[in-house]
Design a protein around this nucleic acid. Sequence first.
DNA 1: ATAGTTATTGTGATATTGACACTTACTATT
DNA 2: AATAGTAAGTGTCAATATCACAATAACTAT
Lengths: 223, 223
Amino acid sequence: MSVYTPPILTVDNVVFSLIAGDLSVLLIERANDPFKGVRALPGGYNAAGETTMDAVARVLKSKAGINLSELNYIEQLYTFDTVARDPRGHAVSVSYMGLCRDIVIPLDKGLQNPQFFPVKNLPKLAYDHVDIISYAHTRLCFKITYTNVVWALLPNMFTLTQLQSAYESILMKSLDKRNFRKKFLSLGLVVASKEFFKDGAHRPARLYKFKKQSLEVLSRSFD
Amino acid sequence: MSVYTPPILTVDNVVFSLIAGDLSVLLIERANDPFKGVRALPGGYNAAGETTMDAVARVLKSKAGINLSELNYIEQLYTFDTVARDPRGHAVSVSYMGLCRDIVIPLDKGLQNPQFFPVKNLPKLAYDHVDIISYAHTRLCFKITYTNVVWALLPNMFTLTQLQSAYESILMKSLDKRNFRKKFLSLGLVVASKEFFKDGAHRPARLYKFKKQSLEVLSRSFD
DNA sequence: ATAGTTATTGTGATATTGACACTTACTATT
DNA sequence: AATAGTAAGTGTCAATATCACAATAACTAT
């Protein structure tokens, strides 16, 4: 135990947002080697005495200028631990997935050029970050089928078209409008408001909102 | 980075098995303080240069006398990282869930008294191991509703009654026999054999087996 | 008034769910 | 050989969910 040397511990955060209708991930540009100048997830060291969530908050602020509280939802994903992930030595990374609305990324010189990139068209990424994003995306696809978690990606009030479009962007396939509406409304996660969204030269769309602005899990059962 | 001190990294393994029909967890008895003599999950340090799965294999063998290959299934669960989990200092634990059939635990003096305990009646446990087991149990309950993962807990050939009983033990509720059979058979995960299991003074039960002895995930979709 | 655009809504065929009870096949006992 | 006991195996009906599919409504701009 006294001669025991642990691996380095790091965190990586996959922050998803719907940017111009596309599911997108927040990436920074690495300031140092290895992978200097290459795009990467915001991540960094986790010191003894801080939780991984603490580390996520610290890193997100210092590298991307975003406060943890700007994420509407965050959950731990998976811990990536292969010995060769980091060329400098064994680094075990606890990954998180965060979801947020359309947020403003500050243009601060101290930051590492944070930007959102559409998931369907990612740049070259450092480390095993492609795998981490892919894992997060798969998890999100599952999660939207049995929870209200898309709430975290949408504005407070939204139209059913927006909602459907969010599902389509995440699942990366198109859905039937009538069936989607019928099914989603029957889940009872969302309520109609009295307000409408007027957009252009066409019929205005009714605005809806989620009943709960926190995770709600639908039970699925065997008998 | 040079002054950076990581937390200790550990692994903990929740091994489930159906013992006398009850969902049970493998526990050892701690040899040293803290929690000396208290029951705990088999777990231990993870050194730099070994993956968490390596560490799980090592610990399982050295503390419980079980080879990793005796587990039919294993997956990573969650990483527990609160600063106060371990009274000795910050220790981050990557937890795994393993599933196995009725296996023989060796009675070796070098081992830490490994034994299976029914989940519904656990002894006092060290650290946050109750939480880890509870997390694993919840995950397993979900997982059996959309995968064939119970295969890993059952013998190669089994009766539908055994299968249903496995579900009931895990979910901790009783299921309707006719509906269970109808539904499960319609999933197409399992095939009937020509063989029967003769047990006592009653009609013999047909034996079934899983088509795949590896994880199969049923897709659930939106439209 | 017309054209253009998006929102909204329903039906029929099929499959799934869930509640519910009797018959079948075997063994042990008499 | 008959009977009792035990667990295995099976079907129906009503309600609900799924899925494919197209016409009408409400607005704006010209």
